[in-house]
Protein backbone atom coordinates (compact mmCIF):
# COMPACT_ATOMS: atom_id res chain seq x y z
CA UNK A 1 0.00 0.00 0.00
CA UNK A 2 1.40 3.38 -0.88
CA UNK A 3 0.54 6.63 0.76
CA UNK A 4 -2.25 8.68 -0.75
CA UNK A 5 -2.28 11.65 1.59
CA UNK A 6 0.67 12.78 3.61
CA UNK A 7 0.15 15.59 6.08
CA UNK A 8 3.31 17.10 7.56
CA UNK A 9 3.32 19.40 10.59
CA UNK A 10 0.01 20.90 9.63
CA UNK A 11 -1.19 23.90 11.60
CA UNK A 12 -4.42 25.82 11.36
CA UNK A 13 -4.81 28.77 13.68
CA UNK A 14 -7.85 31.00 13.70
CA UNK A 15 -6.99 34.56 14.74
CA UNK A 16 -8.94 36.20 17.55
CA UNK A 17 -9.54 39.89 16.86
CA UNK A 18 -9.63 42.32 19.73
CA UNK A 19 -9.28 45.96 20.69
CA UNK A 20 -10.59 48.99 18.81
CA UNK A 21 -8.69 48.18 15.63
CA UNK A 22 -9.70 44.50 15.64
CA UNK A 23 -6.09 43.51 15.60
CA UNK A 24 -5.27 39.85 16.22
CA UNK A 25 -4.73 39.38 19.93
CA UNK A 26 -4.38 35.62 19.94
CA UNK A 27 -5.22 32.50 18.02
CA UNK A 28 -7.39 29.45 18.45
CA UNK A 29 -4.99 26.64 17.74
CA UNK A 30 -7.51 24.28 16.19
CA UNK A 31 -4.89 22.08 14.54
CA UNK A 32 -1.44 22.45 15.99
CA UNK A 33 1.25 20.47 14.26
CA UNK A 34 -0.35 17.28 13.00
CA UNK A 35 1.58 14.76 10.92
CA UNK A 36 -0.49 11.98 9.49
CA UNK A 37 -0.24 9.60 6.56
CA UNK A 38 -3.27 8.01 4.97
CA UNK A 39 -2.51 4.97 2.86
CA UNK A 40 -4.38 4.13 -0.28
CA UNK A 41 -7.61 2.22 0.39
CA UNK A 42 -7.23 2.72 4.10
CA UNK A 43 -10.13 3.58 6.38
CA UNK A 44 -8.59 5.97 8.87
CA UNK A 45 -10.63 6.84 11.93
CA UNK A 46 -10.06 10.17 13.63
CA UNK A 47 -11.33 10.07 17.20
CA UNK A 48 -11.57 12.84 19.76
CA UNK A 49 -13.89 15.02 21.77
CA UNK A 50 -15.66 18.06 20.42
CA UNK A 51 -13.36 21.02 19.96
CA UNK A 52 -10.21 18.95 19.50
CA UNK A 53 -9.83 19.96 15.86
CA UNK A 54 -11.03 16.85 14.03
CA UNK A 55 -13.28 18.70 11.62
CA UNK A 56 -10.75 21.48 11.04
CA UNK A 57 -8.13 18.87 10.20
CA UNK A 58 -10.42 17.20 7.67
CA UNK A 59 -11.43 20.48 6.09
CA UNK A 60 -7.84 21.66 5.88
CA UNK A 61 -6.76 18.35 4.38
CA UNK A 62 -9.06 18.76 1.41
CA UNK A 63 -8.29 22.47 1.36
CA UNK A 64 -11.66 23.89 2.27
CA UNK A 65 -9.52 25.90 4.70
CA UNK A 66 -6.08 27.29 4.04
CA UNK A 67 -3.54 25.96 6.53
CA UNK A 68 -1.45 28.38 8.59
CA UNK A 69 1.64 26.29 7.97
CA UNK A 70 2.66 22.78 7.05
CA UNK A 71 2.51 20.62 3.97
CA UNK A 72 -0.18 18.42 2.51
CA UNK A 73 0.79 15.98 -0.21
CA UNK A 74 -1.96 14.34 -2.18
CA UNK A 75 -0.74 11.43 -4.26
CA UNK A 76 2.85 12.65 -4.47
CA UNK A 77 5.66 10.12 -5.03
CA UNK A 78 8.01 9.53 -2.09
CA UNK A 79 11.08 10.72 -4.01
CA UNK A 80 9.56 14.15 -4.54
CA UNK A 81 8.65 14.43 -0.87
CA UNK A 82 12.18 13.43 0.10
CA UNK A 83 13.60 16.03 -2.28
CA UNK A 84 11.41 18.74 -0.77
CA UNK A 85 12.44 17.65 2.71
CA UNK A 86 16.10 17.89 1.75
CA UNK A 87 15.78 21.32 0.17
CA UNK A 88 13.64 22.52 3.06
CA UNK A 89 16.36 21.73 5.59
CA UNK A 90 18.84 23.89 3.67
CA UNK A 91 18.95 27.57 4.44
CA UNK A 92 17.89 30.45 2.25
CA UNK A 93 15.48 30.91 -0.61
CA UNK A 94 15.54 28.17 -3.15
CA UNK A 95 13.77 28.47 -6.46
CA UNK A 96 13.68 24.70 -7.01
CA UNK A 97 11.98 24.25 -3.66
CA UNK A 98 9.41 26.95 -4.41
CA UNK A 99 8.50 25.42 -7.73
CA UNK A 100 8.40 21.90 -6.29
CA UNK A 101 6.08 23.05 -3.53
CA UNK A 102 3.92 24.88 -6.01
CA UNK A 103 3.50 21.72 -8.01
CA UNK A 104 3.04 19.24 -5.20
CA UNK A 105 2.07 20.83 -1.93
CA UNK A 106 -1.67 21.12 -1.58
CA UNK A 107 -1.23 23.84 0.99
CA UNK A 108 -0.04 26.21 -1.75
CA UNK A 109 -2.64 25.31 -4.38
CA UNK A 110 -5.26 27.68 -5.64
CA UNK A 111 -7.62 28.16 -8.60
CA UNK A 112 -7.85 25.49 -11.25
CA UNK A 113 -5.29 23.25 -9.55
CA UNK A 114 -7.47 23.21 -6.46
CA UNK A 115 -10.55 22.49 -8.51
CA UNK A 116 -8.97 19.46 -10.11
CA UNK A 117 -8.09 18.24 -6.64
CA UNK A 118 -11.63 18.67 -5.42
CA UNK A 119 -12.74 16.19 -8.03
CA UNK A 120 -10.55 13.63 -6.35
CA UNK A 121 -11.30 14.45 -2.72
CA UNK A 122 -14.79 14.91 -1.32
CA UNK A 123 -16.41 15.61 2.02
CA UNK A 124 -19.62 14.30 3.60
CA UNK A 125 -20.90 16.58 6.32
CA UNK A 126 -22.13 15.77 9.78
CA UNK A 127 -25.73 16.84 9.73
CA UNK A 128 -27.74 15.69 6.70
CA UNK A 129 -30.50 18.10 7.72
CA UNK A 130 -28.36 21.15 6.94
CA UNK A 131 -25.97 19.91 4.27
CA UNK A 132 -28.61 19.60 1.51
CA UNK A 133 -30.10 22.70 -0.10
CA UNK A 134 -33.83 22.63 0.76
CA UNK A 135 -34.75 24.36 -2.51
CA UNK A 136 -33.08 21.89 -4.81
CA UNK A 137 -34.52 18.63 -6.05
CA UNK A 138 -32.55 15.47 -5.36
CA UNK A 139 -31.50 15.09 -8.99
CA UNK A 140 -30.16 18.64 -8.99
CA UNK A 141 -28.27 18.08 -5.75
CA UNK A 142 -26.58 14.95 -6.99
CA UNK A 143 -25.91 16.40 -10.46
CA UNK A 144 -24.37 19.60 -9.13
CA UNK A 145 -20.81 18.28 -8.74
CA UNK A 146 -21.04 16.86 -12.28
CA UNK A 147 -22.09 20.26 -13.58
CA UNK A 148 -19.40 22.19 -11.70
CA UNK A 149 -16.59 19.91 -12.74
CA UNK A 150 -17.83 19.67 -16.32
CA UNK A 151 -18.21 15.92 -16.21
CA UNK A 152 -20.76 14.61 -18.72
CA UNK A 153 -21.35 18.15 -19.92
CA UNK A 154 -22.30 16.90 -23.38
CA UNK A 155 -25.21 14.80 -22.16
CA UNK A 156 -27.93 14.96 -19.55
CA UNK A 157 -26.72 13.78 -16.15
CA UNK A 158 -30.00 11.98 -15.52
CA UNK A 159 -28.62 8.50 -16.16
CA UNK A 160 -25.57 9.05 -13.98
CA UNK A 161 -27.70 10.41 -11.15
CA UNK A 162 -30.06 7.43 -11.40
CA UNK A 163 -27.13 5.07 -11.19
CA UNK A 164 -25.63 6.88 -8.20
CA UNK A 165 -28.88 6.92 -6.28
CA UNK A 166 -29.43 3.27 -7.07
CA UNK A 167 -25.96 2.51 -5.75
CA UNK A 168 -26.69 4.12 -2.35
CA UNK A 169 -30.05 2.37 -2.08
CA UNK A 170 -32.56 5.00 -3.20
CA UNK A 171 -35.07 4.45 -5.95
CA UNK A 172 -35.31 6.45 -9.18
CA UNK A 173 -38.85 7.45 -8.25
CA UNK A 174 -37.39 9.77 -5.64
CA UNK A 175 -35.43 11.87 -8.16
CA UNK A 176 -37.93 14.70 -8.27
CA UNK A 177 -38.37 15.06 -4.55
CA UNK A 178 -37.00 17.70 -2.19
CA UNK A 179 -34.75 16.95 0.81
CA UNK A 180 -37.45 17.57 3.41
CA UNK A 181 -39.36 14.57 2.09
CA UNK A 182 -36.63 12.22 3.24
CA UNK A 183 -35.66 10.76 6.59
CA UNK A 184 -32.23 11.37 8.15
CA UNK A 185 -30.76 8.12 6.88
CA UNK A 186 -32.02 8.71 3.34
CA UNK A 187 -30.60 12.24 3.35
CA UNK A 188 -27.23 10.94 4.39
CA UNK A 189 -27.44 8.50 1.47
CA UNK A 190 -28.11 11.43 -0.85
CA UNK A 191 -25.10 13.28 0.56
CA UNK A 192 -22.98 10.18 -0.04
CA UNK A 193 -24.28 9.88 -3.61
CA UNK A 194 -23.32 13.52 -4.17
CA UNK A 195 -19.83 12.88 -2.86
CA UNK A 196 -19.48 9.86 -5.16
CA UNK A 197 -20.61 11.78 -8.24
CA UNK A 198 -17.14 12.95 -9.29
CA UNK A 199 -15.67 9.46 -8.78
CA UNK A 200 -13.26 10.61 -6.06
CA UNK A 201 -10.35 8.61 -4.66
CA UNK A 202 -10.67 10.05 -1.20
CA UNK A 203 -13.71 10.92 0.91
CA UNK A 204 -13.64 12.59 4.30
CA UNK A 205 -16.64 11.84 6.52
CA UNK A 206 -17.39 14.28 9.29
CA UNK A 207 -19.42 12.28 11.83
CA UNK A 208 -21.87 11.06 9.17
CA UNK A 209 -23.94 8.99 11.59
CA UNK A 210 -24.05 11.13 14.71
CA UNK A 211 -27.52 12.45 13.84
CA UNK A 212 -28.89 9.00 13.05
CA UNK A 213 -30.42 6.12 14.99
CA UNK A 214 -28.47 2.96 15.73
CA UNK A 215 -30.21 0.79 13.15
CA UNK A 216 -29.87 3.46 10.43
CA UNK A 217 -26.27 4.02 11.46
CA UNK A 218 -25.57 0.34 10.87
CA UNK A 219 -27.11 0.61 7.38
CA UNK A 220 -24.95 3.61 6.50
CA UNK A 221 -21.77 2.02 7.84
CA UNK A 222 -22.43 -1.14 5.85
CA UNK A 223 -23.06 0.97 2.75
CA UNK A 224 -19.73 2.76 3.25
CA UNK A 225 -17.99 -0.60 3.58
CA UNK A 226 -19.50 -1.81 0.28
CA UNK A 227 -18.67 1.40 -1.55
CA UNK A 228 -15.10 1.32 -0.32
CA UNK A 229 -14.38 -2.14 -1.63
CA UNK A 230 -16.30 -1.51 -4.84
CA UNK A 231 -14.60 1.73 -5.86
CA UNK A 232 -11.30 1.29 -4.00
CA UNK A 233 -11.87 4.43 -1.96
CA UNK A 234 -9.77 5.89 0.81
CA UNK A 235 -11.66 7.19 3.82
CA UNK A 236 -10.94 9.65 6.57
CA UNK A 237 -13.68 8.98 9.07
CA UNK A 238 -14.23 11.44 11.89
CA UNK A 239 -16.20 10.26 14.87
CA UNK A 240 -16.44 10.85 18.56
CA UNK A 241 -17.73 7.36 19.17
CA UNK A 242 -14.85 5.02 19.73
CA UNK A 243 -16.99 1.94 19.16
CA UNK A 244 -17.73 2.91 15.55
CA UNK A 245 -14.08 3.58 14.86
CA UNK A 246 -13.13 0.26 16.42
CA UNK A 247 -15.58 -1.73 14.39
CA UNK A 248 -15.08 -0.25 10.93
CA UNK A 249 -11.70 1.49 10.66
CA UNK A 250 -8.34 -0.04 9.70
CA UNK A 251 -6.32 2.49 11.63
CA UNK A 252 -7.16 5.02 14.32
CA UNK A 253 -5.70 8.38 15.23
CA UNK A 254 -6.71 9.86 18.59
CA UNK A 255 -6.70 13.65 18.77
CA UNK A 256 -6.61 15.88 21.81
CA UNK A 257 -6.58 19.66 21.65
CA UNK A 258 -5.26 20.04 18.11
CA UNK A 259 -2.67 17.28 18.33
CA UNK A 260 -2.59 13.60 17.51
CA UNK A 261 -1.70 11.81 20.73
CA UNK A 262 -1.84 8.21 19.59
CA UNK A 263 -2.09 6.24 16.36
CA UNK A 264 -2.55 2.50 16.18
CA UNK A 265 -4.63 -0.30 14.80
CA UNK A 266 -8.10 -0.51 16.39
CA UNK A 267 -7.41 -3.69 18.38
CA UNK A 268 -4.41 -2.06 19.98
CA UNK A 269 -6.22 1.16 20.88
CA UNK A 270 -9.01 -0.85 22.40
CA UNK A 271 -7.04 -3.50 24.28
CA UNK A 272 -3.61 -1.95 24.73
CA UNK A 273 -3.88 1.85 24.67
CA UNK A 274 -0.60 3.56 25.52
CA UNK A 275 -1.64 7.18 25.99
CA UNK A 276 -3.54 7.91 29.24
CA UNK A 277 -6.08 9.89 27.23
CA UNK A 278 -6.85 7.01 24.89
CA UNK A 279 -7.08 4.75 27.90
CA UNK A 280 -9.68 6.91 29.60
CA UNK A 281 -11.52 7.35 26.30
CA UNK A 282 -11.77 3.58 25.97
CA UNK A 283 -12.78 3.23 29.60
CA UNK A 284 -15.50 5.86 29.44
CA UNK A 285 -17.09 4.51 26.27
CA UNK A 286 -20.32 2.82 27.32
CA UNK A 287 -20.59 -0.69 25.95
CA UNK A 288 -23.93 -2.52 25.85
CA UNK A 289 -22.67 -5.32 28.03
CA UNK A 290 -23.50 -5.23 31.73
CA UNK A 291 -20.52 -7.43 32.53
CA UNK A 292 -18.10 -4.77 31.34
CA UNK A 293 -19.26 -2.15 33.82
CA UNK A 294 -16.19 -2.32 36.02
CA UNK A 295 -12.88 -0.48 35.95
CA UNK A 296 -13.98 2.83 34.59
CA UNK A 297 -11.64 5.77 34.66
CA UNK A 298 -13.49 9.06 34.95
CA UNK A 299 -11.34 11.94 33.78
CA UNK A 300 -11.49 15.01 35.99
CA UNK A 301 -12.21 18.43 34.52
CA UNK A 302 -12.89 19.46 30.96
CA UNK A 303 -10.99 20.05 27.74
CA UNK A 304 -9.03 23.34 28.05
CA UNK A 305 -9.61 26.12 25.55
CA UNK A 306 -7.59 25.71 22.34
CA UNK A 307 -6.95 29.47 22.42
CA UNK A 308 -4.93 29.07 25.57
CA UNK A 309 -3.65 25.51 25.81
CA UNK A 310 -1.67 24.48 28.89
CA UNK A 311 2.13 24.48 28.51
CA UNK A 312 3.94 21.22 27.90
CA UNK A 313 1.79 18.22 27.13
CA UNK A 314 -1.71 19.61 26.58
CA UNK A 315 -3.23 16.71 28.48
CA UNK A 316 -1.21 17.24 31.69
CA UNK A 317 -3.89 19.02 33.81
CA UNK A 318 -6.23 16.02 33.50
CA UNK A 319 -3.60 13.30 33.49
CA UNK A 320 -2.98 11.07 36.50
CA UNK A 321 0.58 10.32 35.43
CA UNK A 322 1.65 13.92 34.81
CA UNK A 323 5.10 14.83 36.09
CA UNK A 324 7.25 17.97 36.02
CA UNK A 325 8.52 16.99 32.59
CA UNK A 326 4.97 16.90 31.22
CA UNK A 327 4.26 20.41 32.41
CA UNK A 328 7.34 21.83 30.71
CA UNK A 329 8.14 19.85 27.60
CA UNK A 330 5.97 18.83 24.71
CA UNK A 331 6.11 15.13 23.83
CA UNK A 332 6.47 14.25 20.17
CA UNK A 333 4.70 11.43 18.39
CA UNK A 334 7.04 8.43 18.42
CA UNK A 335 6.92 4.93 17.04
CA UNK A 336 6.85 2.42 19.89
CA UNK A 337 5.62 -0.73 18.28
CA UNK A 338 4.61 -2.05 14.92
CA UNK A 339 2.56 0.86 13.49
CA UNK A 340 1.78 2.15 16.98
CA UNK A 341 2.66 5.79 17.61
CA UNK A 342 2.23 7.63 20.89
CA UNK A 343 3.03 11.14 22.14
CA UNK A 344 3.60 10.67 25.86
CA UNK A 345 6.53 10.75 28.29
CA UNK A 346 5.00 8.09 30.49
CA UNK A 347 3.09 5.69 28.24
CA UNK A 348 1.13 2.97 29.97
Amino acid sequence: MNTLIDIRKLKKHFPIAGGIFRRPVGAVKAVDGVSLAIKREQWLGLVGESGCGKTTLAKTTIRLLKPTSGHIYFDVPDEVKAEIERLDSQDGKNSTLTSLLKDNDLATFSGSRLRSLRRRAQLVHQDPFTSLDPRMRIKQIVAEPLRIHGILSDQSPEMAVRELLGRVGLSAAQLERYPHQFSGGQRQRIAIARALATKPEFIAFDEPTSALDVSVQAQILNLLKELKSEFGLTYLYITHELLIAESVCDYIAVMYLGKVVEMARPEEIFHKPLHPYSQSLVASTPVPDPKRRVGRIVLPGEVPSPANPPPGCTFNPRCSRASKECRELEPSLELVDNDHYVACFHPL
Binding site: A218, Q219, N222, S247
Partner: peptide, 30 residues
Protein backbone atom coordinates in the same frame (compact mmCIF):
# COMPACT_ATOMS: atom_id res chain seq x y z
CA UNK B 1 -28.37 -7.66 27.29
CA UNK B 2 -27.39 -11.28 27.80
CA UNK B 3 -30.68 -12.94 26.84
CA UNK B 4 -32.63 -10.54 24.62
CA UNK B 5 -35.88 -12.20 23.63
CA UNK B 6 -37.93 -9.82 21.49
CA UNK B 7 -36.80 -9.86 17.83
CA UNK B 8 -36.55 -6.06 17.88
CA UNK B 9 -34.28 -6.03 20.93
CA UNK B 10 -32.07 -8.62 19.28
CA UNK B 11 -31.91 -6.64 16.04
CA UNK B 12 -31.15 -3.42 17.92
CA UNK B 13 -28.29 -5.02 19.83
CA UNK B 14 -26.89 -6.47 16.60
CA UNK B 15 -26.88 -3.01 15.04
CA UNK B 16 -24.59 -1.57 17.70
CA UNK B 17 -21.04 -1.37 16.40
CA UNK B 18 -18.67 -3.50 18.44
CA UNK B 19 -15.07 -4.36 17.68
CA UNK B 20 -14.71 -7.64 15.87
CA UNK B 21 -18.38 -7.98 15.00
CA UNK B 22 -20.20 -7.69 11.70
CA UNK B 23 -22.85 -5.00 11.72
CA UNK B 24 -26.35 -6.34 11.18
CA UNK B 25 -29.01 -4.03 9.86
CA UNK B 26 -32.75 -4.09 10.42
CA UNK B 27 -34.49 -4.39 7.06
CA UNK B 28 -37.06 -1.74 6.15
CA UNK B 29 -37.69 1.63 7.73
CA UNK B 30 -39.21 2.77 11.01
Amino acid sequence: FLHPSHPYTKALLDAVPMPGKDLQTIPGAL
